[in-house]
Amino acid sequence: MADILRPASPVKQARVTIGDLGLALLPQKDLVSIGPFRGQADAVSATVKAALGVSLSSGFQEQDSPEGYAVFRAGHSQWFCRGPEGGMLEARLVALCEGRAAVTDQSDSRVRFSLCGPGAAAIAAKLVPVDLRASAFAKDCVALTLAGHIPVILTCREVLLEYEFLVPRSLAQSLFDDIHIAMKGGIPGSDPICSRADKGDYFIPSVEMDPRDDRNARA
């Protein structure tokens, strides 16, 4: 199909690294939004669960199945379902939901980036104003939020070490640039020149203190 139309990359560069930190465009997958109609949430969830092994959970936690499907929140009463690329996911879901939910293809509307490596949480925190601590944002947690001025869906892939950004395609290049700049800005507290004292490393007075100092001025 479409042999003469070649898909274009949403960004100029698919990957950048700085030290052990990497930012990479992830391969496209099928992405479909599901919005159950009135009173249909349970039925739709059960149907999707039976067919794809993932359900529409009320929490902000991505559900994954061994077959490569995932479901996570896309908004108020809406979910995104992700599946293998070219898997006709939209058509499958339309058939499964049988008019009990709005099913809309979003495969091209969003782009995924992975930010990965030691300090990934600190870099993400320069853009995303949500609590990324392990206690608040564990593996597979999802947050609908802003990265700077850009709306994103953030997923934790590995606590403090790997985050995924799902971003509207038209904003992908801007977000890529913004994350890259944040990576160049360094990991707070990691620069030895700037944080000697923070690590308990002080200038040691080169001359022994005057023994007379061993008196309390007021004693």
Partner: peptide, 23 residues
């Protein structure tokens, strides 16, 4: 649209989502 649906007429059974970036 979200205001009209959620605050004014929650009884209407509609779902909507942006597809600006999809097409």
């Amino acid at each position: 649209l979200e205001f009209c649906h959620q605050c004014l007429w929650p009884e209407l059974d509609v779902q909507f989502i942006s597809v600006t970036d999809e097409w």
